[in-house]
Each structure stands twice: as structure tokens, then as C-alpha cells.
Simulated assay, not measured.
Amino acid sequence: MDNAPGDAFANKTLIMHVRRCNENQLQVPFHVGDDASRTWLITKTGSGLSLKHDHRHKDGSEDALTQYGGHTLDGGWPQVQSFPADQYSKNLFVDAQIPQSIGNTWQMFIYPKVFTYRLIRQGREFRVDFDLTKPITPPPAPWGYQD
């Protein structure tokens, strides 16, 4: 669901999977068709959880718009966490001339049958629901990562 659809996700297969998991971090690549540039990094911190969006070019180098995200402000719920944009991200969005993203909040929902990634801000909602009942063969490593 996207209330401001564009070509980036239209008619493309969307795949997410947990690539790496340890006691401190989850690495979750988000493949959009043949584009393997996105990985969500969910990291435990001393005061909650951090979400970062690791964006890479095909050669593995970092995109100019990378490592943005947010930090939980409270305990959330076992199935739902919200990540309002942190100061690093707000500064990055201003520098990239996309100030509308300053108000971003990312949410992740996990239930037995569905994983949802959601972005909300004033006037914008983007949501992808992933069916967890249908196992997939994980795609190749995302750009910038090694198998």
C-alpha cells in the first residue's frame, strides 16, 4: 500500500528475509525486483532498539542517502515497534533536500503469519505486508554484503 505510488516498487517482486541474527542485531535485506540495495539493521541499544536503512550501490559502496532511521522512544509491544526519525536522519534529509522526510516514523509489525514494514509521516503512508506462511529461497547477498 502506497498513497504516493511511483515506479520504484510498481510491478516488482518484494522480498524480505532475516539474513543474520545474533543477540544484538538483525540484518533484514529488502529486495525490490533485482535491486538488492536495501538492508534494514535492527540493533539493540542501551535504551531500546535502533532501525537503520543501509543503502548500497551495486558495487557495494554506500549510497549518499544511507544509515537513516530512528530509535524507539518506549518499550513498544512484542509485535510492534515504532522508530521516529533520529537527529542524524533529520540532518541527512535536510542536506538531501527532502525535508518532508524529517517527520518519518518507521514501524515494524511481526505476527505469526505476516511481517509488515510501514513508513508514515504527514500526508504519506507506505506499507508492505510479507506473507510469512510461504517460505522462500533467500536471494543472493544484498549489495555490499558477503555470503
Rank of each mutant, 00 (worst) to 15 (best):
His17Leu: 10
His17Glu: 15
His17Gln: 15
Val18Trp: 11
Val18Arg: 14
Arg19Val: 03
Arg19Leu: 15
Arg19Thr: 03
Arg19Ala: 13
Asn22Arg: 06
Asn22Gln: 11
Asn22Ala: 12
Glu23Met: 07
Asn24Asp: 10
Asn24Gly: 07
Gln25Val: 15
Gln25Arg: 15
Leu26Thr: 07
Gln27Gly: 02
Val28Ser: 04
Val28Gly: 02
Pro29Ala: 08
Pro29Gly: 08
Pro29Trp: 01
Phe30Ser: 00
His31Lys: 04
His31Ser: 07
Val32Cys: 15
Val32Phe: 05
Asp35Met: 05
Asp35Arg: 03
Asp35Pro: 04
Ser37Trp: 05
Ser37Val: 02
Ser37Thr: 11
Ser37Phe: 09
Ser37Ile: 03
Arg38Leu: 08
Thr39Cys: 09
Thr39Asn: 02
Thr39Val: 14
Thr39Leu: 04
Trp40Lys: 02
Leu41Thr: 02
Ile42Tyr: 13
Thr43Lys: 12
Lys44Ala: 11
Thr45Asn: 00
Thr45Gly: 05
Thr45Glu: 04
Gly46Asn: 14
Ser47His: 08
Ser47Arg: 10
Gly48Lys: 10
Leu49His: 12
Ser50Lys: 15
Ser50Ala: 13
Lys52Gly: 00
Lys52Arg: 14
Lys52Pro: 00
His53Tyr: 03
His53Leu: 04
Asp54Pro: 04
His55Asp: 08
Arg56Leu: 12
Arg56Ala: 09
Arg56Val: 08
His57Gln: 09
Lys58Ala: 13
Lys58Pro: 08
Lys58Val: 12
Lys58Gly: 04
Asp59Glu: 07
Asp59Met: 06
Asp59Gly: 06
Asp59Arg: 03
Gly60Thr: 07
Glu62Asp: 09
Glu62Thr: 00
Glu62Trp: 00
Asp63Glu: 11
Ala64Glu: 15
Ala64Lys: 14
Leu65Gln: 04
Thr66Gly: 00
Thr66Leu: 02
Gln67Tyr: 09
Gln67Trp: 12
Gln67Cys: 05
Gln67Asn: 14
Tyr68Val: 01
Tyr68Arg: 02
Gly69Tyr: 00
Gly70Arg: 00
Gly70Ser: 06
Gly70Leu: 05
Gly70Phe: 03
His71Val: 12
His71Met: 10
Thr72Cys: 07
Thr72Ser: 09
Leu73Ser: 10
Asp74His: 04
Asp74Val: 04
Gly75Lys: 11
Gly75Ser: 13
Gly75Ala: 14
Gly75Trp: 06
Gly76Met: 08
Trp77His: 11
Pro78Glu: 02
Pro78Lys: 02
Pro78Gln: 01
Gln79Tyr: 13
Gln79Ala: 12
